Simulated assay, not measured.
Amino acid sequence: MSDETRYKLSFTTGGLLANECRVLAAEYLRLGDWREARASVRANNLIQKRTASAVARISREAMDRVRMLTDAELEIVVGGNAPERQQLVWLAICLQYPFVADFAEEEVREKYLSMSNELGPAALDTFFVKKSFWHGELEDLKPSTKNKLRQNLFRMLREAQIVSEAGHILPQVIGERVAEALRRRGPGSFLVFPITDFEIESLMHA
């Protein structure tokens, strides 16, 4: 992404939201309209949150994510297995939040390739410092906001099965349906996952 573009940094709560994304995607595929899909989810509390404000907040975030995906990818989110759903929702998050995509490629994947498979909070602190030279908005963040971003980013990484509970980077097994979706987007879409260049080359030409 361009270093001149301000990072969007609103991923402070909710984790991966894989199930919520599945629900929003299913309603969109049924109704054919995102506003109607979100209205249906809110009216019927299809994501089963305890308060109306939580339903509104979480449904908006989930919709913002799945709107980044194609209809073919949404079909996999709705009908696929858990690993497929997790991988495509992670892709959607990276498409929505270039900060997350850059961290996934430049820190998570690079550590994996260098066989330094432990990923702790310090990696994000280092990343903040490195990126703040080009993104002044990072310097303006309050410590409490940075902490929320850190907590939720690592929660998303764990729920996407990219990082283990113990903080180890997990190799990814990308099945044919997700691989086909990534192929359509181009080789760069594979870079948000901890996989090798050889694996990307193999998947691109499978």
Score class of each variant (00 low, 15 high):
Gly188Ile: 09
Ala101Asn: 08
Val89His: 02
Glu159Tyr: 04
Ala181His: 03
Val23Ser: 01
Ser2Ala: 13
Ala72Cys: 03
Arg42Gly: 00
Gly14Asn: 11
Asn147Arg: 13
Pro187Gly: 08
Met115Pro: 00
Arg150Tyr: 03
Gly79Ala: 09
Lys142Cys: 00
Ile93Gly: 01
Arg6Ile: 03
Arg177His: 12
Lys142Trp: 04
Asn117Trp: 03
Glu201Trp: 02
Phe127Pro: 01
Gly15Asp: 14
Phe99Gln: 04
Gly80Gln: 08
Lys130Leu: 10
Leu69Lys: 15
Ile47Pro: 00
Lys142Gln: 13
Ala43His: 05
Arg50Ala: 10
Trp34Ala: 11
Leu16Phe: 07
Pro98Trp: 15
Ile174Ala: 04
Gly186Trp: 12
Arg150Cys: 06
Cys94Pro: 07
Leu113Cys: 05
Gly80Glu: 11
Leu95Pro: 00
Thr145Tyr: 01
Glu106Ala: 05
Glu176Leu: 12
His205Asp: 06
Ala101Lys: 10
Ile58Arg: 02
Arg38Asn: 03
Ser189Gly: 07
Leu191Asp: 07
Glu27Gly: 01
Ser164His: 06
Glu4His: 10
Pro98Lys: 15
Arg183Asp: 05
Arg184Cys: 04
Gly79Val: 13
Ala160Ser: 13
Lys49Arg: 15
Ile195Glu: 07
Phe198Thr: 15
Ile200Arg: 09
Ile93Glu: 09
Arg60Thr: 14
Ser10Val: 09
Gly120Thr: 13
Ser10Lys: 09
Val129Arg: 09
Lys131Asn: 07
